[in-house]
């Protein structure tokens, strides 16, 4: 069995979701190939070769792979997946954009967002925003699978010694082109891989008030998240959104402040190890999943919390 993993990277650094995907691939078999396609992405290819569990890196360079356009990457994956029994990619927007196209061109179904592998053809995946778990068996000759990072502990990023093979790009498709990107440059840890996440909701009332959260995040070394309502209201950018349609995360500690706990929000964070909720409404559904619930006004609780954290050594 030969397993092809498509690396998510920014032409420089491999994204941690790729490490979780390699870990899933290693459960399926030991012949794991990592495809690193990009532009000036030698350093990403090199770090790909160091991931434990990767046997071989396929490194491809072309200007039209720089921004991971789905049409271009699909053509490449289809051209170099011969002999693969499984094709895997991380389940974020990168994999979701790409893999269904690959599956369609191979004329096979796709299994989205697996969190568990039972055998080479049987997987567990959440449906209905994680309110049910489906065990599915793929009868397709090639299994095309996106991997939910929270289901698999990341493979070690160093210690592997895979060989790097440079291959030719597929001919350009030319249907789409990159225009621009807008992203929050942040000193804080990445939301999807942070050990501690503190999220704010509509309860904050304004983007300005989110500063209260930033202050605590800095003290805890935490990433910041948000509910959809907070994003819709413009308090923060869309990439902060946690939930069914935002990011799915499972940090060691998740602190939800001024968030009611709608099922769509819970879908993104209820696998966290420890959940704290701060909400002034004691009936808020977020308390049903919280290990520690504090019924309080956030505008009083957060400054006190900030002081209390200062007193810790």
């Amino acid at each position: 069995m030969s397993i092809l993993v498509i690396a998510e990277h920014d032409n420089n650094v491999i994204k941690t979701s790729t490490l979780n995907t390699v870990a899933a691939a290693s459960q399926l078999g030991d012949d794991v190939t990592l495809l690193v396609a990009g532009y000036h992405c030698e350093s990403a290819a090199k770090s790909g070769a160091e991931i434990v569990g990767v046997d071989k890196v396929l490194h491809v360079e072309a200007a039209y792979y720089e921004h991971a356009l789905a049409e271009e990457l699909t053509a490449l994956v289809v051209a170099c997946c011969e002999g693969a029994s499984h094709i895997l990619a991380p389940g974020g927007t990168f994999g979701k954009n790409l893999l269904p196209r690959v599956a369609a061109l191979l004329d096979v179904g796709m299994v989205s967002d697996i969190i568990e592998i039972e055998s080479e053809d049987t997987f567990v995946r959440p449906i209905y925003a994680g309110n049910a778990m489906a065990r599915v068996k793929s009868n397709d000759p090639v299994k095309v699978i996106s991997v939910r990072a929270t289901g698999f502990d990341a493979a070690a990023s160093e210690g592997g010694q895979a060989g790097i093979e440079v291959i030719n790009p597929a001919p350009p498709v030319g249907l789409a082109s990159f225009v621009s990107r807008e992203g929050a440059e942040s000193e804080r840890p990445e939301l999807t891989s942070a050990k501690v996440v503190i999220s704010g909701g509509r309860g904050f009332g304004s983007g300005e008030n989110f500063k209260l959260l930033e202050n605590i995040a800095d003290k805890l070394g935490a990433a910041i998240g948000a509910s959809r309502a907070a994003v819709d209201a413009g308090y923060v950018l869309n990439d902060y959104q946690v939930g069914q349609t935002g990011k799915i995360i499972a940090p060691d500690l998740y602190i939800a402040v001024g968030i009611s706990g709608a099922i769509q929000h819970l879908a993104g964070m209820k696998e966290s190890k420890v959940i704290v909720a701060i909400n002034k409404d004691e009936e808020a559904p977020i308390f049903e999943v919280a290990d520690y619930g504090l019924v309080a006004d956030l505008f009083q609780a957060l400054p006190t919390l900030s002081e209390a954290l200062d007193k810790l050594d």
Binding site: V111, N139, D291, Y292, G293, A296, T304, L305
Partner: peptide, 27 residues
């Protein structure tokens, strides 16, 4: 269909948590 759904189960439930009285107890 090319993918069979073998079964559908409830997700594992979280153990019930506790309410804390104030920020100091929380910390």
């Amino acid at each position: 269909p090319s993918i069979d759904v073998l079964d559908i189960a409830e997700p594992p439930a979280r153990a019930a948590g506790v309410k804390v009285a104030d920020v100091n107890e929380l910390v």
